[in-house]
């Protein structure tokens, strides 16, 4: 079970990483297109090779339409897809000044309570995101330039948010078992392998 969730969380992180990589490529292409477009309209290009410049411009050499909104939509999915790994690796920022001195049993109980609250919050986020999706669908909201329905981006994010919520519940269950049995199930390993 632990291995399954770790594999799932890593799979989501890779998926998010691939989308992030695509957004990087898209942005670079758009920048290149915009810079080229300016150069082709410039005096140098227009006097040296006007025919080629015109042909390239006619082909549509220029910024990618809607690059900003694609980055926004893709980034939402990416961050939601990054949440499960952060959850399972215990990578959220916290302050361990006082709890480090607690006896082991008390600390594990505290961790279990915190993980249950976190799981509840992640479930809440997924549930409300679903309601948000329904509202975006109902009001036909689209993006500015490409005018694709915003609920598509919500749906992609919802898929990742549901995985994050499931992972949160699993981590909470594991912590509960740990605090009752004293057995270590999850390692808060944030090294390169986690």
């Amino acid at each position: 079970m632990g291995k399954l969730f770790l594999a799932l969380a890593r799979g989501m992180a890779v998926l998010g990483g691939i989308v992030l990589g695509l957004l990087v490529l898209l942005t670079c292409l758009s920048v290149a297109g915009r810079v080229l477009n300016t150069a082709l309209h410039g005096e140098t290009a227009q006097s040296l090779f006007p025919g080629l410049a015109e042909r390239l411009l006619d082909w549509g050499v220029g910024p990618i339409l809607g690059d900003f909104e694609l980055v926004e939509a893709g980034m939402a999915f990416t961050i939601f897809a990054f949440l499960p790994l952060c959850q399972i690796a215990g990578a959220h920022a916290s302050v361990d000044i006082f709890t480090a001195r607690l006896p082991g049993r008390a600390r594990r109980a505290l961790e279990a309570v915190i993980e249950w609250v976190f799981a509840a919050v992640l479930v809440l986020i997924a549930w409300q995101l679903w309601l948000g999706l329904l509202a975006k669908m109902r009001y036909n909201e689209t993006t500015y330039l490409l005018q694709f329905p915003i609920w598509w981006a919500y749906a992609a994010s919802l898929f990742a948010a549901v995985v994050a919520a499931l992972t949160g519940v699993w981590v909470a269950l594991a912590r509960l078992v740990e605090s009752v049995s004293g057995r270590v199930i999850l390692h808060s390993d944030t090294g390169p392998e986690a």
């Binding site: 082709l40 411009l57 220029g62 910024p63 339409l65 900003f68 909104e69 500015y144 330039l145 005018q147």
Partner: peptide, 26 residues
């Protein structure tokens, strides 16, 4: 022609394209 122009809403961005500018959504 060839100018990168930012427009506030989709109608106006569409208009900039019709006028020959390169519309930028930002």
């Amino acid at each position: 022609n060839g100018m990168k122009v930012r427009g506030p809403t989709r109608i106006i961005t569409g208009m900039l394209g019709e006028l020959g500018a390169t519309p930028v959504g930002m």
